[in-house]
């Protein structure tokens, strides 16, 4: 009887996920996005593609870290061809840098806008266009209603949306599938070698719909994400 009960609960959970639009993974299609252990935090252990993700950065200087993480994810999404739209402010994104993260900059269409209202309008239109792989948008504010509109758009077209919120004042609740916080960390020492190591970030999943919020340290090494040693996280905990 006991086994039967857990089975039933599992079945019900799967059903609920299915109704909410999360399909169970096809065998072998796991670890699709190359985020490693981070993906276990999502329902079914699969990074939700037809969803809007919200990335929060502490300050405008930290925004580069968020841009880096998104570009890393994009490189996986664009592997099999496809186009991405990047809606930014005042042309601050430097296209040649995308090659570092394995994205061909000429496959990205940059739209530069100064007003949040315009940026969100363009993002919603872009998310409705199923020929795109992903849409990235930098805004200051995103309220619940606006995020709902974006979420409705992706449910139709199954495009992945990323909202980068730089220096956001207050974080209200949104309809996004996940809220991330990215912070750059000092890179690891490369033995006795001088110079910078691999890009290293602290990636936090503050909120995940139907998943487990968690915290990881990621490095970008030779074209893919590598989770840093768990020890480092422990050290940080001990330190404070």
């Amino acid at each position: 009887m006991q086994i039967n009960k857990t089975d039933i609960i599992d079945k019900l959970r799967q059903d609920i996920l299915g109704w909410e639009g999360y399909k169970p993974p096809v065998t072998g299609a796991r670890s699709l996005i190359g985020l490693g252990p981070l993906e276990t935090a999502f329902p079914n252990g699969v990074f939700p593609l037809a969803a809007v993700h919200e990335l929060v950065c502490g300050s405008s200087e930290q925004a580069a870290a968020g841009g880096g993480l998104v570009t890393g994810i994009l490189s996986v999404l664009l592997q099999r061809g496809g186009i991405c739209v990047w809606i930014g402010r005042a042309r601050r994104l430097f296209a040649p840098a995308l090659t570092v993260f394995g994205v061909a900059p000429h496959k990205v269409i940059f739209i530069s806008l100064s007003k949040d209202k315009d940026a969100l309008w363009v993002m919603e239109e872009a998310l409705k266009c199923s020929g795109l792989k992903a849409v990235v948008c930098e805004v200051h504010e995103l309220n619940f209603k606006q995020s709902q509109r974006l979420q409705l758009a992706v449910e139709q077209s199954r495009v992945t949306g990323f909202v980068l919120r730089n220096a956001a004042d207050k974080l209200g609740s949104t309809a996004c599938a996940a809220r991330w916080r990215v912070k750059s960390l000092p890179s690891a020492n490369l033995g006795d070698l001088p110079g910078l190591g691999f890009f290293r970030w602290q990636v936090e999943l503050l909120k995940v719909r139907n998943g487990q919020p968690c915290k990881w340290i990621l490095e970008w090494q030779d074209g893919h994400f590598v989770p840093a040693a768990q020890i480092l996280l422990n050290e940080e905990r001990q330190a404070g």
């Binding site: 925004a63 580069a64 841009g67 880096g68 570009t71 005042a90 042309r91 601050r92 994104l93 430097f94 040649p96 840098a97 995308l98 090659t99 570092v100 061909a104 900059p105």
Partner: peptide, 13 residues
């Protein structure tokens, strides 16, 4: 080809 050197993702104009 795109340049191979490491470039910053955000460039000040």
């Amino acid at each position: 080809a795109w340049p191979e050197q490491m470039r910053p993702i955000r460039l000040l104009s």
